[in-house]
Structure formats: structure tokens, C-alpha cells
Design a protein around this nucleic acid. Structure first.
Lengths: 341, 341
DNA sequence: CGTTTTTCCGTAAACGTTTACGACAACACA
DNA sequence: TGTGTTGTCGTAAACGTTTACGGAAAAACG
């Protein structure tokens, strides 16, 4: 049986109120008694019951991370999230906050899981990933007045929540830039068909760069597919059968790139030789693939830490002296040049 | 402001006791009142405050998953855990249990995190991963009488906790079998140097199979290294420089295999041609590597679900009519034959 | 009709904290 | 000596539940 604050108080012949104040560093407690309480706490191996303080304080001291699986994706964007989670949880731990991971089946069910977290107050705030362009989770949380932050932007909600995103627009732009500089003018773009916001941002950058280089955007070179290997495999031939064959492809997802390369191989087209391939976003798979795929890499672990900070800055309970701030950031990607372009 | 059980009771002109009983499906409540309570709960959008019930019931309704990073591994065994976590959390969700993920810095610090979870009762039970042969976390939890289950076996503790592991021994055995059948007799084994239990199991199987085939175990063909790519890169040349060069290598970790293949490439030795390579355990990287690596694959998601079931069966609060049972299982791996052997 | 049983519900305590409030002593000051 | 201030602590309420207990009414039984 674990020791409670009552045991501690009894052991010290002191009231539980004083014990609590001593433990919580309140000012109105004698320095000497504080020492005795601290010593006794260590000796009796006391630590405050979390449920008790949660109830009293109305705060659970835990943050929920919602990993919404794509309907297409069997792997939950696999390699992407672990480093991000690592960073997120590391920073949260510094503030004595726990990390709750909520997944769930693809589709509508996720909303149920989210409601449950919010309504039963299992977490003090929520971190959303896989943001859609129109994201009902964001609408719901905004309306409910529940604190949250997002990894990725969205068009839903006003800008009253912290968000951290990768600069997909710039990555699309830079990818085109790089390819044009290497003599390409027929550049295809393949992205997920879902409403994921980054797909739009990427295409914006792609178009902008083409325009800047005086290259007309050919709709036949733009294709959408399932956000998985099969999707890339399925949709890549479509752009390759375009009248005027592309000499380069930018994939807006690593799994799709892998599937696309498989399709290319079957057509006898070798990435790095017969066609240039660039991937947004890099994962370990890109590095070990043959040929190693040139890709844009995010700093996932620092991003996790940063989003934690941004979320905390928006929570009154954690906001510094400057008060509650809503921060929104867009981070650049780093180009990792490999053998595929 | 969220509605409490008091609001509900006031709204219905009924006592909170009755409301609670109605909501919790207790028998001693009129069918009619129960309907009214349920309807009102839906209408007022009531759901019970989690902290409140936790405090009263002495149960948090959440399970902590401890992901202890290897000191060597920058990636937290990256691809391995997401599918496992997916299965684990899916099954837990069916029982209305939350999943808390606890990571932490490598080494001793993890113990602190574990103590915190246990002592502040932030979770009802713990799931351990990356079990060591001698695992002080297991000792601690056993001594504290805190419920837990492990992914992976250990020599620590008695067998009074549920555990689910992969049959590394059999995989090592089968790998040797396969290689011998293909004419190999000089077979190297490379495994992590840490105290991870699976490294021992693997080597047992490896030795047993060699003995069965009448092949003498050559210590020069067995090497340990850091459990990461650099470790494989570093240690592979050592076995290759053995007097009588091996014609096959079994890697007991995917990252080490990748590093090992890099070393082999630099020595002009091509896996699949000049040497046979088999990996335990398979990850997506093995599949996309060139040549694609033959590997033993676990069923991670089902394993996650299964371990959840086993843990729950050991918890009095969830145990079925048959009572609290400690279950220990060892699951086989499936050989995925590719191009490297 | 009296007695026993059953059905249903209200009361109140308890879980372990935190914190507003007030009390008391000690001390300073006039 | 009286008044005000400061430092320290105890008391008790509150957070939102669940549940043991008892009681009243209704039903069943003789």
C-alpha cells in the first residue's frame, strides 16, 4: 500500500495542509518544517497520488497525441512519427507531463476517440497530426474550447491554436529548381489523393517554381494516388504514359515513391539514369533504397520538442510571464542529395 | 464548463447515487429511471470525469508502455514498435484503457521514469519492451507488486508476470538450417553486445543447429557490436578477416545488418553473390535494401493485441470468470526469402 | 390483514489532494 | 501596554465520482 499525505502528516505530527504546502514549495511554511517534511517524504517514499491532485486541480497533467491513420495507409506514416514523438515526450517530461497516444481506426471513429478524451477530460490538451485541409477535429476542438496544437497546417479553424509545419511549398519549389538547373523541363508531381493539407502546399510550390522558370504546368504530369506503396505503383505509369514523357518525378510521399520506383523498374526505367526522382519527405527507407533517393528531410525530433513548447506557451497554466501566446511556425527541410536525381 | 453528475441529478430531480448506478449498469435501479438518466446524459452531453472515478476507484484506466532506448540506438528500435503499439492500443481501447507512452534517456534515467509512473500511480499496469537479460525494471516492479507484462523474456524476476516474445532461438536455428541446406558450413553470427535477452536466445539456436549438423562452433565467427548501423559496420570486418572466411552471416538486428552490408560492399563482397546474409528481425528496410535482405518477420500488430490480452487476463479487475491467469507465449517468426542468401 | 420479501432510491462517506480562511503566537512599534 | 504586522500552521471545504448502508414503498405471501 502506498503512503498518502495523511501518513506523512501523522508521522510528522503535523497537519496535512502544512505537508502539502511544504511539498509544493509554498512560502508560508517554516524552513525547518519544510526540511523535515521533505526528509520524511523521502524516507516514507511518498509521492502524491496523481488522481487526487488531478481531481482537485482540474488538470490531468497529460497531453494526448492523436495519430489519425490515413484510410490508405496501413502503416500509420510509420517511420515519421517515432522521432517526433521522442522529442515531444522529452520536452513534456520536463514539465512533468505525460504523453497519451491515441490511435484508432481510420475514418470517423477517430472523432469518437477524440471526443472521449475531451469529454472525460483525460488530457489537458491535444496534439493533432495528419492534419487535413478541412479537418473536423480542429473544428470540434475549437468549438469545444479545448486546448490543442497541430503538427501540420489546415484551413479549418481560425489561427488561434499553435501549429508547427514543414515548409512543403518551399520544398516543392526547391525540388523543381534543382531539377530545372539540371536540365529538366518535363517534371511530374505525384501526391496523395487525400485531403491532406501538405499535398496542396507542395503543389503550390511546384507550380510557382515552374512559372518562375517559364515552364507551363501540364496537368498530365500531375497525379494523385493512395498514400502508400500501391498508390505510387498504380499512378506512376499514368504520368509516364503522358504524350511527352517526363524526365523527372517529384513524389510527395516516401511510400508512394517506393511504389513508383517499382513501377518504373518494371517499365525498364532506371531512377538516377533514365529519370530523376526526388522525394518529399525523407525517411530511412529513402536512404537504403537502391538507388538511394534524393529527398527533403525534416528535423523531426527538434520539431517534436518545439511543438511541445509552443503548446505549453499557449496554456495559461504553463505560460511564462509574457502570458499566453499562440505561436505558428513553418520549418524548412534539408535537401539530402543522393543517387536518384 | 463540463456537466457533472450533480447537474444531471438536479436536472432529473434524482439523487446522484441513483444516477451513478444507472450509468454504471447496476441492477438496483428501475428500468424506467435508467432510460431517463441515459437520455438526459446524452442530452446534457455528460460523461464522467476521469479523475473523479480514478480517485474513487483507485484505478487510472491507463496502461503505460515503457520504451527503453538502447544506449547505442539513436532510433529507439524505430520501425519495430509502431505496429506493435498499434495492436496494443487497439485492444486496450476496447476495454476503455488509455495508452501512455514513456520513453526517456538511455540508461539509469528510465528507472526514474518508471518509479514515477508507479509511485504516483499514473497507470494501472506497465508494459516493458527491450527486456534485458538482467532487467532491473522487472526486479523493481516485481518487488513493488506492480502489475506488468513484458515484450521479450528476461532472466530477472520469477515467472509471475505475462510475457510475449519472439522465438529467437528457433529463428537462429532455422537460419542455420537454411544456410546449411544451401551448402554453407562457415556461418558467422553477429549480434548486439548489450545484455538484451534476445541476443542470447539467438545464439543458443545458432549453436544448437550447428551442432546438429556436426559443424563445430568457431568463436571467431561470432561477434558482438553496437546495436546500430555503425555497430554492424564496425564488427563485420572482424568475422570476415577470420582465417577461414565465412560464406554466410546471420545478423541479429536489422540496423546492424545494414551497416554490415556497407562494410561488405567496401570489401568488394556482394551479399547474395559472394556471401549469404540473413537478418533477424525483418523491418521494412530489409525489404527495400539492395539486395533485398532475407529475413525473419514477426507479426507485430497481432503481438501487440495479444500482449494486451495477456496483461488484462492477469489483472484482477479484468480477469474473466476463470480468474487471474499468467500467460507466457513465444511466437514463431516467418521467413521472408529475398535476394541476399 | 399482517408479515416478509423485493424493488428502488437517498444519504453520506470515502478516495487523496490543494487551498482559502482564520487563528495564534511572536515580534515590532508607538 | 496596546496595536499592528509578520510568520506559521491547523481547519475544513472542495474537486467528481462510486458504493456501503439503510429506509420506504411496493409486492408477495401466508
Amino acid at each position: 500500500m502506498a503512503s498518502s499525505i495523511h501518513d506523512l502528516a501523522r508521522h510528522l505530527n503535523i497537519s496535512i495542509g502544512t505537508v502539502s504546502r511544504a511539498l509544493n514549495g509554498r512560502a508560508d511554511v517554516n524552513a525547518d518544517t519544510r526540511q523535515r517534511v521533505l526528509a520524511a517524504a523521502k524516507q516514507l517514499n511518498y509521492s502524491p497520488n496523481q488522481s487526487g491532485r488531478s481531481l482537485r486541480q482540474g488538470a490531468t497533467h497529460s497531453i494526448a497525441f492523436m495519430l489519425q491513420p490515413h484510410p490508405d495507409d496501413q502503416q500509420y506514416g510509420e517511420p515519421f512519427f517515432i522521432p517526433f514523438l521522442t522529442g515531444l515526450q522529452a520536452r513534456l517530461a520536463e514539465y512533468d507531463l505525460d504523453l497519451m497516444v491515441v490511435m484508432g481506426e481510420p475514418g470517423q471513429y477517430q472523432q469518437e476517440r477524440l471526443r472521449r478524451v475531451v469529454e472525460t477530460r483525460r488530457a489537458d490538451a491535444v496534439v493533432l497530426a495528419n492534419t487535413r485541409r478541412e479537418d473536423d477535429r480542429i473544428d470540434y476542438l475549437s468549438k469545444a474550447g479545448f486546448p490543442f496544437a497541430t503538427l501540420g497546417r489546415s484551413q479549418s479553424g481560425d489561427d488561434t491554436y499553435p501549429s508547427l509545419d514543414i515548409d512543403f511549398e518551399r520544398a516543392g519549389d526547391e525540388a523543381v529548381d534543382r531539377l530545372v538547373a539540371r536540365g529538366h523541363r518535363r517534371i511530374a508531381a505525384i501526391r496523395p489523393s487525400l485531403d491532406l493539407n501538405f499535398g496542396y502546399l507542395f503543389l503550390d510550390g511546384y507550380r510557382k517554381a515552374l512559372k518562375r522558370h517559364g515552364i507551363e504546368v501540364d496537368p498530365g504530369l500531375i497525379a494523385d494516388g493512395f498514400i502508400n506503396e500501391a498508390g505510387g505503383y498504380q499512378v506512376t505509369p499514368r504520368v509516364m504514359l503522358s504524350k511527352d514523357r517526363p524526365t523527372a518525378i517529384i513524389f510527395n510521399n516516401d511510400a508512394m515513391a517506393l511504389g513508383g520506383c517499382k513501377a518504373l523498374a518494371e517499365m525498364g526505367i532506371r531512377p538516377g539514369h533514365d529519370i530523376a526522382v526526388i522525394v518529399i519527405v525523407d525517411t530511412p527507407l529513402c536512404r537504403y533504397f537502391s538507388p538511394a533517393l534524393t529527398a527533403f528531410r525534416p528535423s523531426l525530433e527538434p520539431m517534436g520538442r518545439r511543438l511541445a513548447e509552443m503548446l505549453l506557451a499557449s496554456l495559461p497554466a504553463f505560460a511564462g510571464p509574457e502570458g499566453t501566446r499562440i505561436i505558428r511556425e513553418v520549418w524548412p527541410l534539408e535537401l539530402i542529395a543522393r543517387d536518384s536525381d
